[in-house]
Simulated scan of single mutants.
Amino acid sequence: MLLAYQSLGVVYGDLSISPLYVYKSTFADDITHTDSNDEILGVLSFVFWTLTLIPLLKYVSIVLRADDNGEGGTFALYSLICRHANVSLLPNRQLADEELSTYSLERPPEEVAHGSRVRRWLEAHRSLKTALLVMVCSRLFLGLSSPCLFLFALQHYGTHRVGFLFAPIILAWLICMSALGVYNIIYWNPQVYMALNPVYMFKFLKKTKKSGWMSLGGILLCMTGSEAMFADLGHFSYSAIHSLLSLLWCTLH
Rank of each mutant, 00 (worst) to 15 (best):
G9Q: 06
L64S: 04
F150E: 03
D35P: 00
L53Q: 05
A240F: 10
F202W: 15
I17M: 10
G73I: 07
L89M: 10
H84S: 04
G225E: 04
K129I: 05
S226T: 15
L165G: 00
S16Q: 02
Y12G: 01
V162Q: 06
L80M: 04
K210P: 01
F202Y: 12
S243V: 07
L89R: 08
K58G: 00
Y193G: 05
E98I: 10
H160G: 00
R107Y: 08
F46T: 05
L133R: 12
L20Q: 09
P109Y: 11
G218Q: 11
L132H: 06
L3D: 12
F150S: 04
V22A: 03
A195N: 03
L89P: 08
T102I: 03
L174H: 02
L196F: 15
L252W: 03
T74F: 13
H253C: 04
I185L: 07
S25Q: 13
T34H: 10
V47E: 06
R93M: 03
Q94S: 14
Y78C: 01
L133D: 06
Q94V: 11
L90N: 02
L245T: 13
S127N: 04
S246H: 07
V87G: 07
R119C: 02
L140Y: 15
R161P: 00
Y78R: 14
V118N: 04
T224C: 10
A85M: 12
S178C: 03
A85T: 15
G158I: 13
S45N: 03
H84M: 01
C137R: 08
I185F: 10
F150P: 00
Y12P: 04
S18L: 01
G217M: 12
Q94H: 15
K210W: 14
H114F: 15
T74Q: 08
V10G: 00
T251F: 06
N69I: 12
T34A: 13
G42T: 14
I81N: 02
